[in-house]
Simulated scan of single mutants.
Amino acid sequence: MGKIITGATMSLDGYIAGPDESGFDLLFQWYGNGDVELPSASPDVPPFHISAASAELIKPEWESIGALVVGRHLYDLTNTWGGRHPLDVTTVVLTHRRPDDRPEDDENFVFVTDGIEAAVARARQLAGDKNVVVNGGQMARQCLEAGLLDEVGVELVPVLLGGGKTLFGELGAVPVQFEGPTAVVEGTGVTHLRYQVKK
């Protein structure tokens, strides 16, 4: 069975999105500043071009992913990535109500309405022996509070956003400690950090 992982690209002042969903152009510059191409399965998202140092870490991590868990907000914000997530895996969407234009689940999107535990369990089924990645923000917070999370990845970029959304949102029980970093990789315009959740 694979791990349950969350992570995000983060500003130096700790935000994964700026005020009013801003700052993504600054946060994700590292996706286009290198010579190594990583393909995208989304018709709306071009291939990524990252540094060799970043690719050495990121490529095997992406290949180890079997399913994703995201919230309805991100699903809507990205306009469903044009119908397929860039990582080319099934995306489990946790929502209060499934979209009217998606009456049935398919190989691209599965909708779960009964909580984070059910969403992660469904993603585990889809992923098989591979890892499940849970989106940052409310999904990450719920997953951590439910004791489901194994690993956290942070892609730290040299920008200050001054406010916005944090990786774990408003945690209900703090402090939370992690083990590591288990990896520190310096890419171009980004430092990759990996931590294990203390169980």
Results as ranks from 00 to 15, higher is better:
A119Q: 11
R194N: 08
V112M: 07
T6A: 01
G162K: 11
D88T: 06
S51D: 06
K199G: 15
L26V: 01
G180V: 06
D35A: 13
E179M: 07
S22P: 06
P99S: 09
G137K: 06
D13I: 03
F24Q: 05
E170S: 14
P39H: 02
S40A: 08
V70N: 07
L94F: 07
F24D: 07
S22Y: 06
C143L: 02
S64P: 12
E37Y: 00
F48W: 15
V132Y: 10
Y15A: 03
Y15Q: 03
V89H: 02
G23P: 10
I65T: 10
G71P: 13
P158W: 01
Q138P: 11
E151D: 12
V197L: 08
L144K: 00
G187L: 07
T6L: 01
I65W: 08
A127D: 04
V134E: 09
M10W: 03
V134Q: 09
C143W: 00
R141A: 12
Q142M: 13
T166G: 08
G2C: 13
L94T: 05
L87S: 02
D76M: 03
A121H: 14
Y31S: 04
Y31D: 04
V132I: 12
F178I: 06
I58K: 11
P19N: 06
E63F: 04
V185D: 10
I4D: 02
V120I: 07
I116R: 10
A123Q: 07
Q125E: 15
V190Y: 02
L144Y: 02
E61D: 14
K199E: 14
A41Y: 07
T182L: 09
Q177A: 15
G71M: 10
W62A: 03
K3F: 12
G137Q: 08
N79K: 12
G66P: 03
Q177P: 10
F111D: 08
V174N: 07
D35T: 13
G18R: 05
K165I: 14
I4P: 10
G32D: 10
G153E: 14
V159F: 04
L167R: 07
F111K: 08
L57G: 01
E63W: 03
Y195P: 13
I50Y: 01
A8L: 12
M139Y: 03
H73V: 14
P39Q: 03
Q142V: 00
L27E: 00
D20V: 05
G32F: 09
L38K: 03
A118D: 13
L87D: 00
Y75Q: 13
M10A: 07
W30T: 00
M139F: 02
T9E: 00
A121Y: 09
S54T: 15
H49L: 00
P46R: 10
A67Q: 12
V134A: 08
T188D: 15
K3S: 11
G164V: 05
D106L: 04
R98L: 07
Q29G: 15
T6D: 01
A140C: 08
N135Y: 14
V190H: 05
